[in-house]
C-alpha cells in the first residue's frame, strides 16, 4: 500500500520530465538541421558544427570562459571551504550574523545588483576591467555556493572521528588534513563543479564586469541570440549539453562507486 504510485503520480512525473527535457531535446535535434531557418526541418546535416569550429571569435570566447571558470572555481573552492569551516567549527564568533548574511545574500540576490555593484567597485579603485574583474566577480558569487555545499557535509559527519584523532595526540592541523579533509572531499569536489558550471553559465555579472579582450561565451551567444535564432548557437549548445551530461554521469557513477567501496570497508 505504502510507496505505490497512483496514476496521478506517474502522470505528474511523466509530464514534469517531458516539460524539462523536451525543449533541450528539440534544441539538440535542430542543431543537425540542414536549413538555415532553425525551426524548419531541411534534412540531416552536421554543417553547423563545422561552421562553429571555424568561427574563431566563438572559439576564443569559449577558451576565455573556460579559463575564467577554472580560476574562479579554484579560488571559490578554497574560500568556500574555509568559510564553511568557520561557520561550523568556530561557534559564535563576533560578526557571525554578518558573515552568514554575506554568504546567503549573493545566492538569491538578483544578478543585476551583484554585477553592477562589483563593476562600480572596480571603477572606484581604478582596477582595469577585463579577464580578472570577471574572475574576481565569479569567485565572490560562487564561493557562497561552495560554502553551503561543504557546510552541509560538515554538519552531518561524525565528529567523534576528529575527537578520536585529537585524543590520540594529533595536532589540529594534522587532524584536519588526515581526518576531516578526506571525509569532506566529495562535498568539496561537488562545490568545485557547481562553481565551475555557474561561472561557465553566467551572462549578467560577466556583462557588467567585462572589458576589452574578455568576451565570454555567454556574452557572445547572447549577442547572437538577440539578432535572432542561429543554427551555430544550436550546435554550440548541443556540444555544451553533451559535455555536461557526460560529466554529470561520470561524477554520479564515481560517487556511487566510492560510496559502495566505503560501505564494503565498513563491513
Amino acid at each position: 500500500m505504502k510507496n505505490r504510485l497512483s496514476l496521478f503520480n506517474v502522470t505528474s512525473l511523466a509530464l514534469g520530465f517531458a516539460f524539462l527535457y523536451l525543449p533541450i531535446l528539440l534544441l539538440v535535434v535542430y542543431s543537425f538541421n540542414a536549413s538555415r531557418l532553425v525551426t524548419v526541418w531541411g534534412g540531416f546535416s552536421t554543417q553547423w558544427y563545422g561552421a562553429l569550429f571555424r568561427n574563431e571569435a566563438l572559439m576564443d570566447a569559449a577558451w576565455v570562459t573556460v579559463r575564467i571558470a577554472f580560476l574562479s572555481a579554484s579560488l571559490a573552492t578554497v574560500l568556500g571551504t574555509l568559510a564553511a569551516l568557520a561557520l561550523t567549527r568556530y561557534g559564535r564568533f563576533t560578526g557571525r550574523t554578518l558573515f552568514t548574511g554575506m554568504v546567503y545574500a549573493p545566492m538569491v540576490m538578483p544578478e543585476v545588483i551583484t554585477g553592477l555593484s562589483l563593476l562600480l567597485f572596480f571603477v572606484a579603485i581604478g582596477f582595469d576591467r577585463g579577464f580578472w574583474t570577471i574572475t574576481l566577480a565569479h569567485t565572490t558569487l560562487t564561493m557562497c555556493f561552495v560554502t553551503v555545499v561543504v557546510q552541509a557535509r560538515l554538519l552531518t559527519f561524525d565528529r567523534s572521528l576528529e575527537e578520536a584523532a585529537m585524543d590520540l595526540g594529533a595536532p589540529p592541523l594534522k587532524t584536519f588534513f588526515a581526518v576531516t579533509l578526506p571525509l569532506i572531499s566529495p562535498a568539496i569536489a561537488a562545490g568545485f563543479l557547481l562553481a565551475f558550471t555557474l561561472s561557465l553559465d553566467d551572462l549578467v555579472i560577466a556583462s557588467f564586469n567585462t572589458g576589452p579582450g574578455a568576451t565570454t561565451l555567454p556574452i557572445k551567444i547572447y549577442s547572437q541570440v538577440r539578432l535572432g535564432l542561429s543554427p551555430e548557437v544550436n550546435a554550440a549548445s548541443a556540444i555544451l549539453i553533451g559535455i555536461v551530461t557526460i560529466g554529470v554521469t561520470i561524477a554520479t557513477i564515481l560517487s556511487k562507486r566510492s560510496l559502495a567501496r566505503a560501505e564494503r570497508n565498513a563491513l
Binding site: Y90, G95, F99, S117, L118, F121, L136, T140, M143, P172
Partner: peptide, 25 residues
C-alpha cells in the same frame, strides 16, 4: 595564526567584494 586565518580570509573577501561594492552603489 592558522586558526585565525580560517574565518578571516573568506570574511575579508566578502567584506571587500560584497559589502563595500554595495555601499558604493
Amino acid at each position: 595564526l592558522v586558526s585565525g586565518v580560517v574565518p578571516a580570509v573568506p570574511f575579508l573577501w566578502l567584506v571587500v567584494l560584497f559589502l563595500v561594492p554595495f555601499l558604493i552603489v
